[in-house]
Nucleic acid binder design. Structure first.
Lengths: 90, 90
DNA sequence: ACATCAGTTAGATGGTTGTCGAACGATCGA
DNA sequence: TCGATCGTTCGACAACCATCTAACTGATGT
C-alpha cells in the first residue's frame, strides 16, 4: 500500500464523527445516505464533506441512484489498511 | 477498549511524523530518545510533544535513565487497538 | 560549585480542519 | 412545467495542532 493512501486513511479514521459514519456504513452491505442524515447530528454539508473524505481515502464507495446516494465499505481497502498496520508496527 | 482511548490512538496515528516516530520505536526493543533526535528532522520541543502524545495514547512507554529517555512500544495496547479496529469495522 | 547536556514547558504562529448556513444543480413526482 | 427533495459547493469562522525559539529543570562530570 502506498504511503500516501495509508496516511489519508489514518487521517480519515482520526475524526470521531467520521469514524462513527464509517462504522455505521460498515454495519450493513449498503447504506442510504438519507439514513445517515437522519441518524447523525450534523448538517448535510458536513456529512457530505465527511463522505467525500472517506471516499477520497478509498474506504467508502458512493453509488448514485437517481438523486439518492448509497454508501458501502470497500472491504478490500480496509483489509489492506489493517494488513499494512500489522506490517509497519507489528 | 474504551472509546476514549481508541480515539486518542487514532488521532496519534494520524500525523505522518508521529507515525514515523512510532514506526521507528516499534522497530527495536527500546530506542534512545537521542537516537530519534538525530534521525528526525524536528526540534527537540516538537519531538517531546509527539512522544507525550504517543505516551498519553498509551502506545509508547518512556523509561527515564538518569537524564536519558528510552522509548518502547507497548505491544499489548497496539494489539488491542488492531483488534478493536477489526471488531468495529471488519 | 559550575558548565554542560537531555528533555520539558511556555508562548507564538501559521496552517489545517470540522462545522454551519446559504446558494446551487440535478432529479423526480404531480 | 413547477415545486420539492437530495446532495454538492461556497464562503466564513472557530478550534485545533504541528512547529519553532527561548527559557527552564534536573542530572552528570570535572
Amino acid at each position: 500500500m502506498e504511503t500516501n493512501e495509508f496516511q489519508r486513511i489514518a487521517k480519515a479514521l482520526a475524526d470521531p464523527r467520521r469514524f462513527a459514519i464509517l462504522e455505521r456504513i460498515a454495519g450493513c452491505k449498503e447504506l442510504a445516505c438519507q439514513t445517515l442524515c437522519g441518524e447523525m447530528p450534523v448538517s448535510k454539508a458536513t456529512l457530505s464533506h465527511h463522505l467525500q473524505e472517506l471516499e477520497t481515502a478509498g474506504l467508502v464507495s458512493i453509488r448514485m441512484d437517481g438523486k439518492f446516494a448509497h454508501l458501502s465499505l470497500r472491504k478490500d481497502v480496509w483489509l489492506a489498511y489493517r494488513k499494512e498496520l500489522a506490517k509497519r508496527i507489528g
